[in-house]
Write a protein that binds this DNA or RNA. Structure first.
Lengths: 233, 233
DNA sequence: TGGGATTTGTTCGTATGTATT
DNA sequence: GAATACATACGAACAAATCCC
């Protein structure tokens, strides 16, 4: 009986995931200060665990860690954003090359279903819409089975949403969903050239949406409430 | 006057760097256990700082962090190694594309000088030879100015040396130095196609060196001695 | 400019979990 | 297979730096 919440699978990963999701959903916009105390208090863990999570997030480029001055949600510059997308192109192109003509039936179904849920979320104006659009790309990457590639694509997709939060249209979901469908068709057909072409075009259109948006966030503890629940904290 | 060694630039980064170099030099071969106590003792810092460094190294894929069972130098499988090189191909190809015909004179000189020192180290049978070969690739990447790309190439090159330690020929330096020279020439000439070709071929030949090597390491504190000094610890 | 409040950096003790004999 | 030895996981408390009046 010595496992009250550790047994629930909730250790430091949970803190990491809660914060990450909050950032990706733009509930914690870029620049938001992330004080160790408030976060730990809200999530019911000590600062040690929070520090660990923040350190990990900083390695992923989602959080900036200024010495003696605390952590904050990263605010990548426009140029960093451009560089990021250049790298993302190269890796997602690799994903498509590896996958063209190699998708199993189950994988095709999973992708198709994911696109459906993207569709629905958008129609309902659901906030998850932004995250779902990104998850299409990570889902695709995961199907390569290449752990390194998966990790990098995950990271770049996550950071892309930061760029979009800073420089993208207010709430335009990141991706044109129809483009996801086209890409899936090309992959099914085993047409690597077309698939690559589509992916490149798709990412280019994502990249070139550069306008402004502005939001403020009040108290970090309020924002974290729902994310804590989701992680069983 | 409260800065005895913190002032020397030595905080947690120093622990990280010392361990990383020890791993890359294969002074700490894959599988070596990394107990927080011994390391902290030898480096003169507390376990907290060591933990932080180990956590970072695990994010970079150099260290495995098994819950409740401590840290050890990562021992990637052959398949992970293959996947790693696939990803590395894609990114270094991008590096070459970005750089072809765009190198400044100073950059060309720096690369040329680096190759010279590779040459010399190898002739002397210097242990640094392995690390220098890898640093040619990271030097190249750094010239793109693309922070994301640089970080990933750094990581992949570092992890490559783990693969080589596990599955490569005993002490064959990682790269054929002549191939570095050829690549540099193609980049100077602005011949992107040839440069890409050379890089691909070069990395393929690195990948396909898969034999066996075996070493043991005695006490981790002895090994760390020289690396501690180098970081002012 | 100064001083108090707040936040981060670090250490260290205790509890928990894992290997070993 | 139980007890012992050991290493890690976590948290509370202290020290130092920064921020804000």
């Amino acid at each position: 009986m010595t496992k009250d919440k550790a047994a629930a699978g909730g250790r430091s990963p949970a803190v990491h995931r809660a914060l990450k999701r909050a950032i990706l959903d733009q509930a914690l916009p870029p620049g938001t200060k992330l004080p160790e105390d408030s976060i730990g208090e809200r999530l019911g863990v000590s600062r040690t665990l929070v520090r660990e999570a923040l350190l990990r997030l900083s390695e992923e480029g989602l959080v900036e860690l200024r010495p003696n001055r605390g952590a904050a949600v990263a605010r990548p510059s426009l140029e960093e954003g451009y560089d990021l997308f250049v790298t993302r192109f190269a890796l997602e192109k690799l994903v498509v090359e590896l996958l063209a003509g190699k998708l199993t039936g189950a994988q095709q179904d999973a992708l198709s279903r994911h696109i459906d849920s993207e569709d629905e979320a958008r129609r309902h104006g659901d906030a998850r819409s932004i995250r779902l659009a990104g998850e299409f790309h990570t889902l695709l990457a995961s199907m390569t089975g290449n752990a390194t590639l998966i990790r990098y694509v995950n990271e770049l997709v996550a950071r892309s949403s930061l760029i979009l939060a800073l420089y993208g249209r207010p709430h335009s979901s990141e991706c044109a969903i129809s483009e996801h469908r086209q890409l899936l068709e090309a992959l099914k057909a085993g047409d690597a050239a077309t698939a690559t072409q589509l992916m490149t075009h798709h990412l280019e259109s994502v990249t070139t949406r550069a306008l402004l948006t502005r939001d403020k966030v009040e108290d970090i503890r309020d924002v974290l409430a729902s994310y804590a629940a989701a992680e069983g904290l």
